[in-house]
Simulated scan of single mutants.
Amino acid sequence: MKLSASIIEIIACCILIFVSIVGNAILIHCTWRCIRRRLPTSFTLIFSLAIVHLLKNLVVNTINIISSAGISTNATYCKIGLFTSSLTTTLEIWFTLYMAVFYCVKLNRVVHPRRTPPNGKWRKHHVIGVIALWITGIAVSCPYLIFGESLENQSLLNSSLCIQHGFLYDQCSFAFGDPQVELYYHKIFMVIIDLFPLLILVMVSCRTLLLFREQKKATYGNIWIGHDASETEVLRASKIIIFLTLLITSLWVSHFVLVSFLKIAMSWYLTPTILILLCSVYSSLSPYLLMLINYKISLKIRALSSFCCANAKKPTLSDGEKSSVPVESVAED
């Protein structure tokens, strides 16, 4: 029995929502348990990304499920869906870029050590920067919440032709009033808002690769002395950020190309499902990679997994491991 496009779309959305909720819930729980006195910068970025991921899957994919199930929708669903999709996609890129720059600077300190210790006052500046990104993202995406509308006539026409693009691509539109303003905002400005940070993200990743190349050749007085736990954490986090860069860039470019040539692929059976996957896979898979960035978060996840067993005990660190655990002020500032 051949499944319809709507059923496949519902199944894909349910899987994405489930995977995202599990991953982000574990990430938030373990990250929160690691906080002692102050909120480290990396934890602030992880919290922000986790919230963004949950918003995208719980709001956007739930609306897609409602539409695919045949439940009647109106302009309100379009406004909320377009706004949330735009906001979460933009913030995902911005916060990933922020994290990439953050760890690129820390990796540069590992490869080229400084005599002076890092300034702890930067923590407050990072928190202000994260809040500013949230406010900017909401302000940039607000027009979708105001001028989004439902195209009922176009939806009926596509239904008669057995063409399905997905709810946000087929039944929703952005009506600004002035076609020129709509063109400059919807098709130029919003693309630049995402594309420009992605280009910077790729360049930062290239710089990180160059630092890795220098790190392999680095010695201190012609003697290689290895790395402590905090430096190992920076090296591991930088590698994960490179993989996240490849993932988010490839997904965004593929999604942009498919939407640009949507008229050509309008009769493709799996077009709605592919669009949903390209839009939401990053928010569902990246939490599991973010769990590996911080050393203390990894320990909490191990403790949580062992706690699920009836007679399991919380893992303890040996004296040697305790001495190698990075100090919060050194590893996170």
Rank of each mutant, 00 (worst) to 15 (best):
T31E: 04
V22H: 05
T44A: 07
W32Q: 04
T41R: 12
L45H: 11
R36L: 07
N24C: 13
I46C: 07
C34E: 02
I26C: 12
I46Q: 07
V19Y: 04
I28Y: 03
T41E: 02
L27Y: 08
L16E: 01
I17E: 06
N24S: 10
I28D: 00
W32I: 10
L49T: 05
I26H: 04
I26Q: 02
T31V: 08
C34D: 08
L49P: 00
N24R: 04
R38F: 01
V19T: 13
S42T: 10
N24P: 09
C34H: 03
P40G: 09
S42H: 04
L45S: 06
R36I: 13
R38V: 05
G23F: 05
C30H: 06
R36Y: 08
L27A: 06
W32K: 11
I21P: 03
C30A: 10
R38C: 04
I46R: 11
P40C: 08
S48R: 13
T31G: 14
S48C: 15
P40I: 09
T44F: 09
C34G: 02
A25E: 00
N24D: 02
I17S: 14
F47P: 05
R38K: 07
A25N: 00
T31L: 04
S20K: 11
L45K: 02
T41V: 15
G23E: 01
L27D: 08
T41I: 14
V19M: 11
I46K: 08
A25K: 02
V19G: 01
R36H: 12
V19D: 14
F43M: 07
I46P: 04
T41Q: 06
